[in-house]
Design a protein around this nucleic acid. Structure first.
Lengths: 202, 202
DNA sequence: GTCTATATGTTGATAGAC
DNA sequence: GTCTATCAACATATAGAC
């Protein structure tokens, strides 16, 4: 497995895929049909290769899934461990995290959809789900802090606030389209506006 | 197929399942593992029956899915066609629909999760997804009306408002637990409070 | 790196006895 | 209405030539 030819520009073989380009196609097939329903035959067809040629680049189907999930898990981890997420006022840390998570949701939309629809059917899925729960827990802690700071409304449970916030962000994978009516920045602004003061007129 | 013994209490055979009780178990297996990964062997095992006995009650795996999806699609259709949803102020119609959808999300949680994770891999899935899109369109129309009535903030696009609202409601399937910390009524109240004025203090 | 062929297991669904 | 036995199709993955 793993071509990993250090050669920057030149590449032999026919289609000239590197693993990352292949993975992009694979993730599309995974999200179009669902991981379980996506067959290696279809993946191979979309790549213009035979099944065994695909196996030259990836060890197994679940290895493809693991690499795809790492794209979004790694990006989210970067957001939650950034300096702006670990110091300062809870309200500002929340805004930073929400902003970053929206950006990740848009940039890694398909991989995030994959993550959100896992069922824990394998070790790879279970580990990814656990990492995801870690993000939930961290945002919940921030809302608990916000409650003591007075920046979360007293009539809102921190756990509920966390669920609502991630529910909102995660739902982006359902409808966001790159190059569509809304840019990731506009969406992040709208989400923050929503968190701050709702949808309806006072 | 279809036992449908009109006898109210008495029932022969061993486990005494009627189709609806069986479907409840099946929906649980579908949501636990995902529709595609859920095998008929596992379903049969959970029901304490053989595979062929299961086939006596259901024509096919996709027929089980269709019946499960009807549970939530029918309930949502009832909400959107209720008198309170089709007449009156847009803001009040929206509140009614949100309230009803939250209730459905809690009462038909597993079936809704099934609906939300469809990929369109079969005719059954495609038809269900189309009905779901109908609900999206109807709520969007209500937000468009609310905008002209002035009850939706002018800085919010109606389409965005609809996406956010359903995103919030649909995310309930991820964490709501019957008998848990929050009742459906409390959740509906919190969702409406969120829509009205956000999470944070002014 | 890619291919054709194949191994090996699993799946949804059926046949037919009781 | 339930069972055991079985099928044909399809799945992931491998072998080995080029």
């Amino acid at each position: 497995m793993a071509s990993a030819t250090p050669t920057p520009a030149a590449r032999r073989g026919r289609p000239g895929y590197d693993q990352e380009q292949m993975l992009e196609v694979i993730v599309k097939v995974f999200t179009d049909h669902g991981y379980d329903a996506a067959t290696l035959e279809l993946i191979a067809k979309r790549l213009g290769l035979s099944k065994s040629a695909v196996y030259h680049h990836f060890d197994s189907k679940s290895a493809m899934l693991e690499l795809a999930l790492e794209q979004v898990l790694g990006a989210l981890e970067a957001v939650f461990t950034a300096p702006e997420a670990v110091t300062g006022l809870a309200s500002e840390r929340i805004e930073f995290v929400v902003n970053g998570a929206v950006r990740v949701a848009c940039e890694r939309q398909l991989a995030l959809q994959l993550l959100l629809r896992l069922h824990g059917n394998s070790e790879v899925e279970l580990k990814a789900m656990e990492r995801r729960r870690g993000f939930d827990a961290k945002l919940k802690q921030l809302f608990e802090l916000a409650l003591t700071e007075g920046s979360l409304r007293a009539d809102f449970d921190p756990g509920l606030a966390e669920r609502f916030t991630f529910g909102l962000i995660n739902s982006l994978v359902e409808w966001y389209r790159p190059g569509g009516r809304f840019t990731p920045e506009e969406i992040a602004d709208a989400v923050l506006r929503f968190l701050r003061s709702g949808l309806t007129t006072p």
